[in-house]
Design a protein around this nucleic acid. Structure first.
Lengths: 188, 188
DNA sequence: GAACTTACATACCGACGGTCGGTTTGTATA
DNA sequence: TATACAAACCGACCGTCGGTATGTAAGTTC
């Protein structure tokens, strides 16, 4: 797994051969195929692992009691930072969707990764009355897609810091705009 | 090109072999490689063509003199319909980004496809004062990413019409929210 | 200790992308 | 019509790579 992760991150999934992974791991091809049905399952395992790791890091920003929309914003900021790390970008943003297919990619992310947290975050904000409770699933999809796009845009930008600031502001603005309007009495 | 387009649309890029394309086109492999440097260039050509075609269709919604934001909304609605067509979905949304890479995918779309129109539409809306003129490039990216995600979500949805309505509403709402606030005197 | 499972290793297969030497067809010139 | 050259085209061949078949040594169970 570590060997595969390294090679995928460095050369991409397609350009990494099963033999290379086996060699790096110090085992034979047969051993590898004993543990994984095929190459794609290796990627699925590596990606799932990565999702777990990122989930752990993202959970750090969830301060209980805080404004749920602010928590979401903080999560988005941190996620964008994670997205710029080479390993996550290559494996989770580029290879996984291409090789696993969009559906499975999102499913794994929803189960074990940041997408799942995002959905729960939106649901929490909705049940706290801060966001509309309608179309949470769809909102989550549009948001994660925007974050992913922003990450790739930042990665290619000649001025990454600036691009990050701009896109972050746009996304946070979107979150702010979608707040449920408060009654005047509630507005402190 | 037509042969390749059909096969890609039906079986996907990876699962289509050069020999199949050549056979279907009634030429030899050598002839094919005489016209295209490698397999990826065949996809690039097919995708570029597809972008042109879609651009033409999208241009139909641009009514001169209309509210630029409304034009954008209409364009988004039409684009979402295009996205649900099998050929466009498979080639432009699934295979092209995976095989060409995100950067080249967006570049072609920006040059010849809907993404270019979107950018110009946002720019037009900005210069008409309807949208902020800042961060147009980034806005365009976030919007096209949302549209793409919505398209794939719709394609997988058990209730596609409903999902399309929901996502369309969310995206139009976003556009509406990002209007530059008008002075009170201007608001008819 | 026989039957069986697990965990590997090695040799091998078929498909596929891409190359290359060579042939045919088209075209400009004399 | 003959010559020269280029563009279009053919199909056999090669290397790589994902995946499989076969073999084997070390437990585990009864």
């Amino acid at each position: 797994m570590a060997a595969a992760s390294d090679l995928f991150a460095e050369h991409g999934y397609e350009r990494t051969s099963i033999d290379q992974i086996a060699d790096r791991a110090g085992v034979s091809k047969g051993a590898l195929y004993h543990h994984y049905r095929d190459k794609i399952e290796v990627l699925a395992a590596v990606y799932t692992d990565l999702c777990h790791e990122v989930s752990g890091r993202l959970l750090g920003v969830a301060v209980p009691g805080a404004d749920p929309v602010e928590v979401l914003k903080a999560g988005c900021r941190l996620y964008l930072e994670v997205c710029t790390e080479r390993t996550y970008r290559q494996i989770a943003l580029i290879d996984a969707p291409a090789a696993l297919g969009w559906a499975r990619w999102r499913d794994i992310d929803a189960e074990d990764g940041g997408f799942g947290l995002l959905r729960r975050g939106l649901a929490a904000a909705a049940s706290a009355g801060a966001l509309p409770s309608a179309a949470i699933e769809e909102r989550a999809h549009l948001l994660i897609a925007a974050l992913t796009e922003a990450a790739l845009l930042i990665a290619r930008s000649p001025a990454p810091d600036e691009t990050r600031a701009t896109t972050t502001a746009l996304i946070e603005r979107q979150l702010e705009d979608s707040r449920t309007p408060r009654l005047r009495a509630e507005t402190a």
